[in-house]
Amino acid sequence: GPMASDKRPRTAFTAEQLQRLKAEFQTNRYLTEQRRQSLAQELGLNESQIKIWFQNKRAK
């Protein structure tokens, strides 16, 4: 629909990254900035991508 703007492409996470994020989520529903930074480095992701993933996951 018209609401779907092309400005922010959805990140396609790899299965491996998703597995890691899910495991982290089961341990911590809320990430500290430090955890998020190390996860971002570990997974080669953007911190904001991880932050948003957690927000979306909590919203469900």
Rank of each mutant, 00 (worst) to 15 (best):
A59P: 04
S38D: 08
R36N: 07
K57F: 07
A12R: 14
L21E: 00
Q26E: 12
A40C: 04
I52N: 10
E33K: 14
L43Q: 01
L39I: 06
E33H: 14
L39W: 01
G1A: 04
S5H: 04
K60W: 04
P9N: 06
P2R: 09
T11R: 13
Q55A: 14
F25H: 02
T14V: 02
T14S: 07
A23T: 09
A59I: 09
Q34F: 09
I50K: 01
M3K: 15
F25V: 03
E42I: 05
E47W: 03
T27G: 07
A40Y: 01
R8D: 15
T27F: 12
A15D: 08
R10N: 14
T27L: 13
E16K: 11
G1Q: 04
W53V: 02
A12H: 13
T32Q: 04
E42Q: 07
I52M: 12
A12Q: 12
M3F: 03
F25A: 02
Q19W: 07
R20A: 07
K51M: 12
I50A: 00
E24M: 03
F13V: 04
S5I: 03
T32W: 04
K57R: 13
S5K: 05
A23L: 11
N56G: 06
A12Y: 13
F54H: 01
K60L: 09
W53H: 01
D6V: 05
A4E: 15
E16T: 09
L43K: 00
Y30Q: 07
M3L: 13
R20I: 07
Q55L: 09
F54K: 00
N28I: 03
T14K: 04
P2I: 07
Q49A: 14
E24R: 01
K22V: 11
Q17I: 08
R58G: 05
R36V: 13
E33R: 14
R35N: 06
P9F: 05
M3N: 15
A12I: 11
T27D: 09
R36F: 08
S48T: 12
R29D: 06
Q34G: 09
N56E: 08
R10Y: 13
S5Y: 01
D6F: 00
I52A: 12
L18F: 06
E33D: 12
R10D: 15
F13I: 05
L31G: 02
T14D: 04
Q26S: 09
I50T: 01
K22Y: 12
T32V: 03
Q19R: 11
T11N: 12
E24P: 00
R20L: 05
R35K: 08
K22C: 12
W53G: 00
M3R: 15
F25I: 03
Q37G: 07
T27C: 13
Q17F: 01
E24D: 02
Q37A: 13
E42D: 06
E24G: 01
I50W: 01
R29G: 05
I52W: 13
S5D: 15
L31V: 05
I52Q: 14
T11K: 13
L18T: 06
T11F: 12
Q34W: 07
A23K: 10
K57W: 09
D6K: 04
Q17W: 01
L45C: 09
K51E: 14
Q26D: 06
K57Y: 12
W53C: 02
Q37M: 10
W53K: 00
T27I: 14
E47D: 05
Q55V: 08
K60M: 13
E42R: 03
L31Y: 01
G44V: 04
Q26F: 09
T11P: 14
E16A: 13
I52K: 14
G44A: 06
M3H: 15
L39G: 00
L39V: 03
T11D: 10
A40M: 03
E24H: 02
S5N: 09
Q37D: 05
L39T: 00
K60G: 08
Q17H: 04
L39D: 00
L31H: 02
K7W: 09
L45M: 08
Y30S: 06
E47H: 04
L43W: 03
L18D: 04
T11V: 11
Q49H: 07
F54P: 00
K7L: 12
Q37N: 07
D6Y: 00
Q41M: 11
R20T: 05
K60N: 07
L45V: 10
K51Y: 13
L18V: 08
Q34C: 07
A23E: 10
R29M: 07
L18A: 05
Y30E: 07
T27S: 13
P2W: 02
Q55P: 02
E47C: 04
K22G: 07
A4F: 14
T32I: 03
M3V: 15
L18H: 06
R29H: 08
N56R: 15
R29Q: 11
R58Y: 06
L43G: 00
Q26N: 14
A40I: 03
W53T: 00
R35L: 08
T32N: 12
N28Y: 04
Q26A: 12
L39C: 01
A15S: 10
K7V: 13
R36A: 14
L31A: 04
R10Q: 14
K51F: 13
Q17T: 05
F13G: 01
L45A: 05
F13S: 02
Q19P: 01
K51C: 12
R29F: 05
Q34E: 10
I50M: 02
K60S: 09
F25E: 01
M3S: 15
R58M: 07
L18P: 00
L18W: 05
Q49W: 09
E42C: 04
A23W: 09
T11A: 10
A23P: 00
Q26R: 13
Q34M: 09
F54L: 02
F25R: 03
K60V: 08
I52R: 14
I52P: 01
S48H: 11
E42A: 06
G1M: 04
T14A: 03
S48V: 12
E33Y: 12
R10F: 14
Q37P: 01
L45T: 05
G1I: 05
Q41T: 09
N28C: 12
G1S: 04
L21W: 01
L45I: 10
F25T: 01
T11Q: 11
R29T: 04
N56K: 14
E16Y: 13
Q34S: 13
K57L: 06
F54W: 12
I50H: 00
N28A: 05
D6S: 06
A23Y: 10
Q55C: 10
K51I: 13
L21T: 00
R20F: 04
A23I: 12
N46T: 10
A15H: 11
A12D: 07
R20H: 04
S48Y: 13
